[in-house]
Amino acid sequence: MTDTKRPREPFAPWDRRSLPGLFDVEETAERIGHYKWVEMKLFEALGGWVATVPELDVKLRLGTHCYHHAWHADLFDKRLPELREMKTERLTVPANDQLVAFFEAMTEPEDATMTIEKLVGVYRVLIPHKIAAYTYHRNATSEITDMPTVRILDFILQDEFNDWREGEMLIQSMIETEAEVERAMNHQLKLEKLMLAAGGIAGPGSIGDPYVEMPEEN
């Protein structure tokens, strides 16, 4: 049951237009390291799956999207030294073990009959979470001091939206029976729970915290 009395901020956490950035240099570098790790795991999986999906259109889209995420990883990798991290691999790490578990579950399907599961993991779970985290970061960081990151995220988000739409359409085109609807939903459910445990692609706080501490009653 939703608690309707629980107060929220008048401005959502990602709407920070007139405020200075939320992240300092160190925190920005850490988040970008997590993003890079996610992009790498994603492009590797998409590349690996190409050989395992029999649907020709899906095969070609996965091959194309594989490069998009590799390019994102490269953009993040190049940003890290500008944030005082010269050994970029030091920060190229998952936000937590739960995120590792998420990726293990997402990349588990291999069988040629499991294209729906493969697509659902990427396009209904991971990419929406990436869009959320990147949007939060883009809107919450300072557009003056951290504009290079904003610019990178803007390019990346454009890819993410396009790829999400293509992936979602592939899923819709592949679901033809109620049983397949259930397969898609069950897999999404399983992965969403793992993502919940991870707290998002950059860990807890991936999209900020929308709730307010209740002041003690006088």
């Binding site: 095969k59 996965l62 594989c66």
Partner: peptide, 30 residues
Amino acid sequence: LEGAGRTCWDFEVGEDVPFELKLDMARQCW
């Protein structure tokens, strides 16, 4: 396409191949 994709997946960055090699393979996928 399948071969380049597998090279993205089969090897670990740092242990087996440099990061940039995988980027090339992803580009080749496209």
